[in-house]
């Protein structure tokens, strides 16, 4: 029977472990930038009907920041929900929740990115 400290003592540093914490901070900063852009853009839109929104989203000046926003925010929420799961779920339920979290993130991110690209590369409405 060895303690956890005894098992790792003398093995040296893992040279990683802070990346989750650091990436959450980095994406917090990029979330801030992209969300300020999105809120300001949405607030100054002339209208919210189909043609106005589609024309707005079909511009590269909107599609690219929107893609960056999705990448930043979805990565950030995956990291954040991982912490929530690790706090409340144990053993098998934690494993299942983590798999579902990754599947969910990939599914919504994939759909969002496809939708943005379809609008941006599509013919003008």
């Amino acid at each position: 029977m060895r303690t956890e400290l005894g098992r790792v003592r003398g093995l040296g540093s893992a040279h990683e472990g802070a990346h989750h914490w650091w990436h959450q901070r980095l994406t917090a900063g990029t979330n801030f930038l992209t969300l300020v852009w999105l809120l300001a853009s949405l607030a100054t839109l002339p209208g919210y009907d189909y043609l106005t929104v589609r024309l707005w989203l079909s511009s590269a000046w909107v599609a690219v920041p929107m893609l960056l926003l999705v990448a930043s925010i979805f990565y950030h929420f995956r990291l954040g929900l991982q912490v929530v799961i690790e706090d409340y779920a144990r053993m098998e339920s934690r494993f299942v929740a983590m798999v579902l979290l990754n599947v969910y993130t990939a599914a919504v991110a994939g759909t969002a990115i496809f939708a943005i690209l379809k609008i941006a590369f599509g013919s003008q409405a």
Binding site: Y50, V53, R54, L57, M66, V70, I73, F74, F77, G80, L81, V84, V108, T111, A112, F114, A115, I116, K118, I119, G122
Partner: peptide
């Protein structure tokens, strides 16, 4: 924590629905 979890689920799904609706066309929007 509550708002982060809420936006990650409800908020993200609404954002995706909005984007997908614009991509799908007039009727979906």
């Amino acid at each position: 924590r509550m708002l982060g979890s809420g936006m990650a689920t409800v908020g993200a799904l609404l954002l995706v629905w909005w984007l997908a609706a614009v991509a799908a066309g007039d009727a979906a929007y």
